[in-house]
Computed example of a mutant assay.
Amino acid sequence: MHRNPIDLALSLASAGKTEQACALLADAGAQGSAEAWMQLAVWYLIGAPVPRDLDRARTCLAKAVAIGHVDGALMEIALLANGNGGQTAPDWPRALRALDIAAQNDPVAAAQRALLANMALRPDGTPLATPVGEILHDAPRLQRFPRLLTPEECAHLATTAQPLLEPSFVLDPRSGRPMPHPIRTSDGGAIGPTREDLVVRAINLRIAAATGTDVQNGEPLTVLRYAPGQQYRRHLDTIAGAANQRMATLILYLNQGFAGGETSFPAIGVTVQPRAGDAILFETLLPDGSPDPQLVHSGEPVRAGAKWIATRWIRQAPVDPWTLAAG
Protein backbone atom coordinates (compact mmCIF):
# COMPACT_ATOMS: atom_id res chain seq x y z
CA MET A 1 0.00 0.00 0.00
CA HIS A 2 1.33 3.44 -0.96
CA ARG A 3 1.52 5.87 1.93
CA ASN A 4 0.15 9.37 1.66
CA PRO A 5 3.14 11.58 0.72
CA ILE A 6 2.33 14.06 3.48
CA ASP A 7 2.20 11.31 6.12
CA LEU A 8 5.46 9.91 4.77
CA ALA A 9 7.08 13.38 4.80
CA LEU A 10 6.00 13.93 8.40
CA SER A 11 7.46 10.54 9.33
CA LEU A 12 10.74 11.37 7.58
CA ALA A 13 10.91 14.76 9.30
CA SER A 14 10.31 13.22 12.73
CA ALA A 15 13.21 10.84 11.99
CA GLY A 16 15.48 13.79 11.23
CA LYS A 17 15.45 13.23 7.46
CA THR A 18 14.35 16.79 6.72
CA GLU A 19 15.87 17.13 3.25
CA GLN A 20 14.17 13.95 2.07
CA ALA A 21 10.88 15.12 3.56
CA CYS A 22 11.04 18.48 1.78
CA ALA A 23 12.00 16.84 -1.52
CA LEU A 24 9.10 14.42 -1.21
CA LEU A 25 6.62 17.25 -0.59
CA ALA A 26 8.00 19.34 -3.45
CA ASP A 27 7.69 16.35 -5.78
CA ALA A 28 4.11 15.68 -4.66
CA GLY A 29 3.33 19.36 -5.13
CA ALA A 30 4.76 19.34 -8.63
CA GLN A 31 2.41 16.46 -9.39
CA GLY A 32 -0.59 18.54 -8.34
CA SER A 33 -0.92 18.16 -4.56
CA ALA A 34 -2.00 21.48 -3.06
CA GLU A 35 -1.80 19.92 0.42
CA ALA A 36 1.88 19.08 -0.12
CA TRP A 37 2.73 22.68 -1.03
CA MET A 38 0.67 23.84 1.94
CA GLN A 39 2.58 21.56 4.32
CA LEU A 40 5.88 22.93 3.04
CA ALA A 41 4.59 26.48 3.40
CA VAL A 42 3.63 25.83 7.02
CA TRP A 43 7.05 24.37 7.79
CA TYR A 44 8.84 27.40 6.38
CA LEU A 45 6.47 29.76 8.18
CA ILE A 46 6.85 28.24 11.64
CA GLY A 47 10.55 27.44 11.23
CA ALA A 48 10.26 23.72 12.02
CA PRO A 49 11.51 21.22 11.07
CA VAL A 50 13.32 23.53 8.61
CA PRO A 51 14.76 27.00 9.27
CA ARG A 52 12.20 29.78 8.89
CA ASP A 53 12.19 31.19 5.36
CA LEU A 54 9.26 33.50 4.72
CA ASP A 55 10.07 34.00 1.05
CA ARG A 56 10.09 30.24 0.43
CA ALA A 57 6.92 29.93 2.48
CA ARG A 58 5.16 32.49 0.30
CA THR A 59 6.34 30.68 -2.86
CA CYS A 60 4.97 27.35 -1.61
CA LEU A 61 1.78 29.02 -0.46
CA ALA A 62 1.26 30.64 -3.86
CA LYS A 63 1.66 27.24 -5.54
CA ALA A 64 -0.91 25.70 -3.20
CA VAL A 65 -3.34 28.53 -3.93
CA ALA A 66 -2.79 28.22 -7.69
CA ILE A 67 -3.87 24.59 -7.50
CA GLY A 68 -6.95 25.56 -5.51
CA HIS A 69 -6.21 25.45 -1.76
CA VAL A 70 -9.01 27.62 -0.29
CA ASP A 71 -7.56 27.97 3.22
CA GLY A 72 -4.21 28.77 1.65
CA ALA A 73 -5.82 31.62 -0.28
CA LEU A 74 -7.14 33.15 2.94
CA MET A 75 -3.73 32.72 4.57
CA GLU A 76 -2.04 34.41 1.62
CA ILE A 77 -4.49 37.32 1.86
CA ALA A 78 -3.74 37.71 5.58
CA LEU A 79 0.02 37.80 4.96
CA LEU A 80 -0.45 40.34 2.18
CA ALA A 81 -2.34 42.64 4.54
CA ASN A 82 -0.04 42.40 7.56
CA GLY A 83 3.30 42.22 5.75
CA ASN A 84 4.54 39.22 7.74
CA GLY A 85 5.04 36.89 4.81
CA GLY A 86 8.39 37.99 3.44
CA GLN A 87 7.38 40.96 1.30
CA THR A 88 8.68 44.43 2.11
CA ALA A 89 5.53 46.04 3.49
CA PRO A 90 1.84 45.42 4.20
CA ASP A 91 -0.29 45.78 1.08
CA TRP A 92 -3.91 46.33 2.14
CA PRO A 93 -5.26 47.30 -1.32
CA ARG A 94 -3.85 44.17 -2.94
CA ALA A 95 -5.13 42.00 -0.09
CA LEU A 96 -8.59 43.54 -0.41
CA ARG A 97 -8.66 42.85 -4.15
CA ALA A 98 -7.67 39.25 -3.49
CA LEU A 99 -10.41 38.93 -0.87
CA ASP A 100 -12.96 40.26 -3.37
CA ILE A 101 -11.96 37.50 -5.79
CA ALA A 102 -12.07 34.80 -3.10
CA ALA A 103 -15.46 36.03 -1.88
CA GLN A 104 -17.03 35.11 -5.21
CA ASN A 105 -16.76 31.39 -4.37
CA ASP A 106 -15.88 31.14 -0.68
CA PRO A 107 -18.51 31.92 1.99
CA VAL A 108 -15.83 32.56 4.63
CA ALA A 109 -14.21 35.21 2.45
CA ALA A 110 -17.64 36.64 1.62
CA ALA A 111 -18.50 36.97 5.32
CA GLN A 112 -15.22 38.80 5.96
CA ARG A 113 -15.89 41.12 3.03
CA ALA A 114 -19.36 41.92 4.39
CA LEU A 115 -17.90 42.86 7.78
CA LEU A 116 -15.30 45.09 6.17
CA ALA A 117 -18.01 46.84 4.15
CA ASN A 118 -19.49 48.10 7.42
CA MET A 119 -16.19 49.54 8.65
CA ALA A 120 -15.24 53.15 7.91
CA LEU A 121 -11.73 52.59 6.58
CA ARG A 122 -9.09 54.48 4.66
CA PRO A 123 -7.51 52.90 1.56
CA ASP A 124 -4.75 51.41 3.77
CA GLY A 125 -7.20 49.78 6.21
CA THR A 126 -6.77 52.30 9.01
CA PRO A 127 -9.93 53.84 10.52
CA LEU A 128 -11.31 57.09 9.09
CA ALA A 129 -11.81 58.45 12.61
CA THR A 130 -9.52 58.03 15.60
CA PRO A 131 -11.38 56.40 18.52
CA VAL A 132 -11.76 58.67 21.53
CA GLY A 133 -11.69 57.31 25.06
CA GLU A 134 -13.15 58.53 28.34
CA ILE A 135 -10.97 58.90 31.43
CA LEU A 136 -11.73 56.49 34.27
CA HIS A 137 -8.63 57.45 36.27
CA ASP A 138 -6.15 60.22 35.53
CA ALA A 139 -2.85 59.27 37.15
CA PRO A 140 -2.06 56.56 36.33
CA ARG A 141 -4.30 56.95 33.28
CA LEU A 142 -7.01 54.40 32.69
CA GLN A 143 -9.36 54.95 29.75
CA ARG A 144 -12.49 53.28 28.44
CA PHE A 145 -13.48 53.26 24.76
CA PRO A 146 -17.23 52.66 24.62
CA ARG A 147 -18.37 50.48 21.70
CA LEU A 148 -14.93 50.23 20.12
CA LEU A 149 -16.18 47.06 18.43
CA THR A 150 -19.56 46.18 16.96
CA PRO A 151 -21.35 42.98 18.08
CA GLU A 152 -20.47 41.40 14.72
CA GLU A 153 -16.79 42.24 15.15
CA CYS A 154 -16.80 40.79 18.67
CA ALA A 155 -18.37 37.59 17.36
CA HIS A 156 -15.78 37.39 14.58
CA LEU A 157 -12.87 37.55 17.04
CA ALA A 158 -14.41 34.85 19.23
CA THR A 159 -15.11 32.62 16.22
CA THR A 160 -11.61 33.13 14.79
CA ALA A 161 -9.96 32.24 18.09
CA GLN A 162 -12.25 29.33 19.00
CA PRO A 163 -10.07 26.61 17.37
CA LEU A 164 -6.95 28.08 19.01
CA LEU A 165 -8.15 28.00 22.61
CA GLU A 166 -6.08 25.93 25.00
CA PRO A 167 -5.87 25.80 28.80
CA SER A 168 -3.39 28.27 30.26
CA PHE A 169 -0.21 26.41 31.20
CA VAL A 170 3.37 27.31 32.08
CA LEU A 171 6.44 25.08 32.28
CA ASP A 172 7.39 23.79 35.71
CA PRO A 173 10.98 25.06 36.18
CA ARG A 174 11.88 21.93 38.14
CA SER A 175 10.43 19.19 35.94
CA GLY A 176 10.13 21.03 32.61
CA ARG A 177 6.59 19.71 32.28
CA PRO A 178 3.46 21.80 31.62
CA MET A 179 1.58 22.78 34.77
CA PRO A 180 -1.54 24.89 35.32
CA HIS A 181 -0.86 28.62 35.08
CA PRO A 182 -0.41 29.93 38.64
CA ILE A 183 -2.53 33.07 38.21
CA ARG A 184 -4.58 32.62 35.01
CA THR A 185 -7.13 29.82 34.77
CA SER A 186 -8.74 30.73 31.45
CA ASP A 187 -8.49 29.13 28.02
CA GLY A 188 -6.64 31.29 25.52
CA GLY A 189 -5.26 31.54 22.01
CA ALA A 190 -3.27 34.12 20.05
CA ILE A 191 -4.33 35.11 16.53
CA GLY A 192 -1.01 34.94 14.69
CA PRO A 193 -0.08 36.37 11.27
CA THR A 194 -1.57 33.57 9.18
CA ARG A 195 -4.96 33.91 10.92
CA GLU A 196 -4.96 37.69 11.08
CA ASP A 197 -7.60 38.04 8.37
CA LEU A 198 -8.54 41.49 7.08
CA VAL A 199 -11.24 41.94 9.73
CA VAL A 200 -8.76 41.17 12.52
CA ARG A 201 -6.15 43.34 10.82
CA ALA A 202 -8.58 46.27 10.62
CA ILE A 203 -9.35 45.83 14.32
CA ASN A 204 -5.63 45.82 15.17
CA LEU A 205 -5.20 49.00 13.11
CA ARG A 206 -8.10 50.55 15.04
CA ILE A 207 -6.40 49.59 18.31
CA ALA A 208 -3.18 51.22 17.09
CA ALA A 209 -5.10 54.40 16.30
CA ALA A 210 -6.84 54.39 19.69
CA THR A 211 -3.57 53.89 21.55
CA GLY A 212 -1.46 56.20 19.39
CA THR A 213 1.03 53.41 18.71
CA ASP A 214 2.41 51.62 15.66
CA VAL A 215 0.47 48.46 14.77
CA GLN A 216 3.80 46.60 14.52
CA ASN A 217 4.41 47.18 18.24
CA GLY A 218 1.41 45.05 19.22
CA GLU A 219 1.70 41.41 20.17
CA PRO A 220 -0.70 39.06 18.35
CA LEU A 221 -4.24 39.66 19.59
CA THR A 222 -4.92 37.10 22.33
CA VAL A 223 -8.46 35.89 23.03
CA LEU A 224 -9.29 34.51 26.48
CA ARG A 225 -12.41 32.64 27.60
CA TYR A 226 -13.28 32.33 31.28
CA ALA A 227 -15.73 29.66 32.45
CA PRO A 228 -17.43 29.78 35.87
CA GLY A 229 -14.81 29.80 38.62
CA GLN A 230 -12.00 30.88 36.33
CA GLN A 231 -10.12 34.12 36.90
CA TYR A 232 -6.92 36.08 36.33
CA ARG A 233 -5.43 36.81 39.74
CA ARG A 234 -3.68 40.09 40.56
CA HIS A 235 -0.73 40.74 38.28
CA LEU A 236 1.21 43.31 36.26
CA ASP A 237 1.38 42.95 32.49
CA THR A 238 5.08 43.83 32.28
CA ILE A 239 7.62 41.03 31.78
CA ALA A 240 10.62 40.81 34.08
CA GLY A 241 13.87 41.45 32.23
CA ALA A 242 12.29 42.09 28.83
CA ALA A 243 14.45 44.21 26.55
CA ASN A 244 11.37 45.24 24.57
CA GLN A 245 8.94 45.87 27.40
CA ARG A 246 5.15 45.97 27.34
CA MET A 247 4.26 49.66 27.58
CA ALA A 248 0.45 49.47 27.36
CA THR A 249 -2.46 47.05 27.47
CA LEU A 250 -5.81 47.25 25.69
CA ILE A 251 -8.54 44.83 26.77
CA LEU A 252 -11.57 44.29 24.54
CA TYR A 253 -14.75 42.88 26.10
CA LEU A 254 -16.36 40.58 23.55
CA ASN A 255 -19.59 39.67 25.35
CA GLN A 256 -21.77 40.29 28.38
CA GLY A 257 -24.60 38.47 30.12
CA PHE A 258 -22.26 36.62 32.51
CA ALA A 259 -21.92 37.15 36.26
CA GLY A 260 -18.67 38.34 37.81
CA GLY A 261 -15.56 38.79 35.70
CA GLU A 262 -14.98 42.46 36.53
CA THR A 263 -11.53 43.97 35.85
CA SER A 264 -10.27 45.36 39.15
CA PHE A 265 -7.45 47.83 39.83
CA PRO A 266 -7.18 47.68 43.64
CA ALA A 267 -4.33 50.20 44.01
CA ILE A 268 -6.36 52.98 42.36
CA GLY A 269 -9.79 51.86 43.56
CA VAL A 270 -11.33 51.27 40.11
CA THR A 271 -13.42 48.29 39.03
CA VAL A 272 -14.58 48.01 35.42
CA GLN A 273 -17.78 46.17 34.61
CA PRO A 274 -17.39 44.43 31.23
CA ARG A 275 -19.69 45.65 28.44
CA ALA A 276 -19.65 43.97 25.06
CA GLY A 277 -17.74 46.04 22.50
CA ASP A 278 -16.06 48.28 25.09
CA ALA A 279 -12.32 48.43 25.60
CA ILE A 280 -10.08 49.69 28.38
CA LEU A 281 -6.55 51.03 27.94
CA PHE A 282 -3.79 51.60 30.46
CA GLU A 283 -0.07 52.30 30.26
CA THR A 284 2.04 49.85 32.20
CA LEU A 285 5.28 51.79 32.73
CA LEU A 286 6.43 54.76 34.79
CA PRO A 287 8.31 57.60 33.06
CA ASP A 288 11.64 55.95 33.95
CA GLY A 289 10.59 52.75 32.16
CA SER A 290 9.98 50.66 35.27
CA PRO A 291 6.67 48.85 35.88
CA ASP A 292 3.94 50.96 37.45
CA PRO A 293 2.92 49.11 40.63
CA GLN A 294 -0.38 51.03 40.80
CA LEU A 295 -1.59 49.18 37.70
CA VAL A 296 -1.69 45.76 39.29
CA HIS A 297 -5.05 44.33 38.22
CA SER A 298 -7.13 41.19 38.15
CA GLY A 299 -9.93 39.54 36.24
CA GLU A 300 -12.36 38.63 39.00
CA PRO A 301 -13.80 35.09 39.09
CA VAL A 302 -16.69 34.41 36.72
CA ARG A 303 -19.69 33.22 38.73
CA ALA A 304 -21.99 32.18 35.88
CA GLY A 305 -21.83 32.07 32.10
CA ALA A 306 -18.69 32.56 30.01
CA LYS A 307 -16.61 35.71 29.71
CA TRP A 308 -14.77 36.42 26.44
CA ILE A 309 -12.09 39.10 26.08
CA ALA A 310 -9.31 39.93 23.64
CA THR A 311 -6.08 41.52 24.82
CA ARG A 312 -3.48 43.46 22.82
CA TRP A 313 -0.21 43.91 24.70
CA ILE A 314 1.78 46.75 23.15
CA ARG A 315 5.57 46.85 23.30
CA GLN A 316 8.01 49.75 23.20
CA ALA A 317 9.33 48.71 19.77
CA PRO A 318 8.16 46.50 16.89
CA VAL A 319 7.83 42.79 17.62
CA ASP A 320 8.44 39.77 15.41
CA PRO A 321 5.17 37.80 15.65
CA TRP A 322 6.91 34.61 14.46
CA THR A 323 9.54 34.55 17.19
CA LEU A 324 7.97 36.65 19.92
CA ALA A 325 9.54 35.89 23.27
CA ALA A 326 9.61 37.55 26.66
CA GLY A 327 12.99 39.12 25.96
Rank of each mutant, 00 (worst) to 15 (best):
P131K: 00
Q143H: 10
G229F: 15
H137W: 04
R52G: 09
Q39L: 08
S168G: 07
I239K: 01
K17N: 08
A276I: 01
L281M: 04
L8P: 05
T249I: 13
E262Q: 15
A81P: 10
G299V: 07
A81K: 01
L252A: 07
A41I: 09
R206K: 14
R184N: 12
R113G: 06
P140N: 02
D7T: 13
S175T: 07
A304S: 15
P180T: 14
L286K: 15
A209D: 13
V296F: 03
G47C: 04
R312M: 08
D187P: 00
R312F: 06
Y232P: 03
N204L: 08
I207S: 05
F265A: 14
F145E: 01
A28Q: 07
M1Y: 02
T222K: 13
V296N: 03
Q316V: 04
E283Y: 13
R275H: 12
D106H: 03
P274E: 00
L221F: 10
A155N: 15
P180K: 11
T249D: 02
T126H: 12
Q39D: 01
P182S: 12
A202R: 01
I239L: 10
D320W: 11
R315T: 04
L136P: 03
R58Q: 15
E196G: 09
T238V: 13
A57T: 11
R56W: 11
V170E: 07
L295Q: 08
R144G: 02
M75I: 15
D106Y: 04
A114K: 10
A15F: 01
A267C: 12
A306V: 10
D100P: 08
D27C: 08
A48H: 08
A117P: 02
N255Y: 03
A78Q: 00
G68L: 04
R122Y: 01
V108R: 04
E196K: 10
F265Q: 13
D53H: 07
L74D: 05
A240F: 08
Y232T: 05
L250G: 10
G189I: 05
A15V: 01
R113M: 12
V296E: 11
A78I: 00
A139H: 09
I77H: 03
